[in-house]
Design a protein around this nucleic acid. Sequence first.
RNA 1: GCGUGAUUGGUGAAGUGGUUAACACGGCGGAUUGUGGUUCCGUUAUGCAAGAGUUCGAUCCUCUUAUCGCGCCCCA
Length: 426
Amino acid sequence: MLQKPKGTYDVYGEKGRQILYLENLLHSLMEKYHYEYVRTPIFESSELFHRGVGETTDIVSKETYDFIDRGDRNMTLRPEGTAGVVRSYIENKMYGNPSQPVKTWYMGPMYRYERPQSGRFREFYQFGVEVFGTDNPMMDAEVISIPVNFYRLLGLKGIKVNINTLGDIESRTAYREALLEHFHPHLGELCEDCKIRYEKNPLRILDCKVDHDLECMKTAPKILDYLNETSKTHFEEVKKYLEVLEIPYQVNPNVVRGLDYYTHTVFEVEASIEGFGSQNVLCAGGRYNHLVENIGGPSTAGVGFALGMERLLSALECEHITVGKDILNLYIIPVDESQIPNAFALTQELRMNGFSVDMDYMKRNFKGNFKQADRLNASFVILLGEEEVKTNILTIKDNHTQEQYQVKKDELIAFLDAHIVEEHDE
RNA sequence: GCGUGAUUGGUGAAGUGGUUAACACGGCGGAUUGUGGUUCCGUUAUGCAAGAGUUCGAUCCUCUUAUCGCGCCCCA
């Protein structure tokens, strides 16, 4: 049998409603934050991802989906959202927009060629924001507030915000030197992976799971001691504004993201929920004041984050939070076959009046139709037979109270408006 | 890329080297042909991921492949 490609999944039914609900919620949240929607291609020149991410990061085996198109161009399915948005920002000269900063959001599928496991797919959906053109720490706080407020709206409880700073380039370089010096005598104690990290990206030694409990980890120098005045002030301001917004957070010096384009603020929101898998980072982001420049634009400050829809859904499931209810206002039953056309027409009419309406397509018998109405959880059932059509008085039954009404066709819409609005108020 | 466990109907699943693959839910039909969600009856897998091998015979044993789960690596 033909199967879906490894690491992909189909969305349908219940899950479809959940996804749409979450996407709509994000969309309306972004309207409130007054961010602009950006959509970039799913594939870009390979160069964009392989260069923009930085040569010195420890992503050696760039786990991307690459292909060569018919014009012999190297293409890559986007593994993340930021690079594409930055490219678009530069190419469309958004740095020249009259209104600054440029605040954007995006949502869509991303692709990584990895071994699937809990909370990790080869095709996955991310929502993210990128803000360009301001170095104001307020913006760092605002960006962090977005996922936190979103999770709050959904009622997610078990979330933890970890923030840290990597400082500016000067501070970071000094810290890097200090780390190398500190770990040098301990190289023998570190795991094989950390020896590689020592060479390529020493910051990442700090969030190693294997060596976590080593003495030399605990005594390692802290970034906070290596910040210059500018960096220190920036971080203090970010914390201040988080407090203004009443966003709870923890400073966690071990949060260093994998990429070296980050400067100053980095953060992760993790799910601290019982029974959640090992992939528990729900969203992550930070400030990247040199990325635009690296990709070929003018020197521009930037800050952003991305969250994964799949892990969000798992978190909601873990906390038994249901979103995206299936709503059906009306189910129409043609009493005998001759009334099918009339029922079909009535269905359309009611749909055009703003109700969600379904009907019998299976020529079910009477009992089967009522069962179907139950299954679909219809609020009301309309019985359409010869009698009703002749007299223009419809039989409509409240599916929950079992109360039955006779309503004139002309008054049907008003009747439904009144009753269905009541339902929604409950 | 490495390790490890799994794969039986629409669903949850039990099970055995040997003629008919439990049980439950759901679906459909009937008792009840314009009033249901209860009950009862009937029905619902030429089929046990795919291919190859061992065997008189395999869903069950072996191998390969695919996919899924979990962990590692990595996480843009």
